[in-house]
Write a protein that binds this DNA or RNA. Structure first.
Lengths: 234, 234
DNA sequence: TCTCCTTGTTGAACGTGTTCAAAATAGAAA
DNA sequence: TTTCTATTTTGAACACGTTCAACAAGGAGA
């Protein structure tokens, strides 16, 4: 529904149409030929506009990815929300979110590599930790907030509050693995999910016990500490 | 000493000189102006050669990074080896390796972002999981093998054999954090090291206890399973 | 010294992402 | 309708990474 960073205006009916046209064409070509093989000239031509027009709506070729990313999240949400509504167990809910994530992104497997590539650059607005992608990050974490709250877990306060963020990081790890996964049908990624979700779940259940908390308390303190944003050096 | 993937020959005294000249000039410029701001034309001109000559020795601009990476590892090794020789405790050894890693790379903080950016791309030869960078990966893991073996820990066999690899992943995590760290003097990264090393160390110590092994066994099995390389789909 | 093949070097040319001044087209106000 | 401004659209031009056919230098064997 909403784009991550509105790279450009669309103040007219006509404008919105053009913008949509360009994005749609770009994503088609990306899926078809891959990101690198698709030139801005090809996108413009296929969309029936001039090159410069594409740059009027999207600051750069990379910004097309950003738009794609937002769209992907919406699709993921649409797929997993109904499934989530009829599952209460924590590991089951977690597995649903992760599997639908991979399934939704699967048509863009090759393409997603570029996404992560640019996302890893601290200078890029696509970087998931950047202020620019605060909305995307918020949405991602919110989904896991929903996973946790819907599961009715009994958890210590500190764990409870950081868990959605930690699960979001966990998801990023899964996605990173998936991107590098060249196995048939990405079977290894699914195996990773199937086997790691129970481990994570058990780890979370342990959070209540004093012995585990000996560990968790400093670990969580560290996470909280490091999440606090800092102003860069002058 | 050794380069990661010999992108090009240097079969002559003269050739080696030229190669060295280009690499040195490139790294200087990268450090000075950043990677993106440094053009191949500028490198060639500053090195006193033609553009094409740079491409004779380095397959691409990115391959200059690869050469840099190998050089950085050698420097890191040179710095931390003597320190490692006079420290037996596991957490101390671990901390030495991580801190010297960051210190060695610090002059290239901005530049390293690009390294990780390209490294995140599965298609790139710089990707640390690619067959192409097997030597680099081997060297990185070997260093942690040395950290573990020199610490004289009593560990279960399965943990013992996977630990160097896991510590290497841990290091990658630290470096990833460092790259995104904009705090003054990267103070947060050092805090992360100071606080996470004891946690990791305690976690490792726990590996001997049966209760912990209830967890570790399936987790390690998963790691071992997923590390096994697979042929891509046909 | 001369020959011949490997190694090293050149720079113009290509395709790419991107910019920008100028032109065309809304859409509202008169 | 006509005018006027903000919005949209254009495509040539720019800078960059990269390629390649051609040329130069080096050095081993005669």
């Amino acid at each position: 529904m909403e784009e991550v960073t509105e790279a450009a205006p669309a103040k007219t009916r006509k404008g919105e149409q053009t913008r949509e046209q360009i994005l749609e064409t770009a994503l088609d070509l990306f899926r078809e030929k891959g990101y690198e093989q698709t030139t801005m000239r090809a996108i413009a031509q296929a969309a029936g506009v001039a090159v410069g027009n594409a740059y009027y709506y999207f600051r750069s070729k990379e910004h097309l990815i950003q738009a794609f990313y937002g769209r992907l999240h919406d699709e993921h949400l649409a797929v997993c929300a109904p499934l989530l509504a009829r599952q209460r167990g924590f590991p089951a809910r977690l597995k649903i979110v992760l599997k639908t994530k991979i399934e939704t992104a699967m048509p863009y497997h090759r393409f997603s590599a570029i996404l992560f590539k640019t996302a890893a650059d601290p200078a890029s607005p696509l970087n998931p930790f950047s202020p620019d992608s605060e909305p995307t990050r918020r949405q991602g974490i919110d989904l896991f907030e929903e996973v946790v709250s819907g599961a009715g877990l009994k958890l210590p306060k500190d764990v409870r509050s950081e868990l959605p963020y930690l699960l979001w990081l966990y998801e990023m790890g899964i996605v990173l693995f998936w991107i590098h996964d060249a196995s048939a049908g990405c079977a290894r990624t699914y195996r990773l999910i199937d086997k790691s979700v129970p481990l994570v779940s058990r780890l979370v259940s342990l959070a209540r016990f004093p012995i585990a908390r000996l560990f968790l308390k400093p670990a969580l303190a560290l996470v909280v500490d490091l999440r606090r944003p800092v102003e860069p050096e002058p």
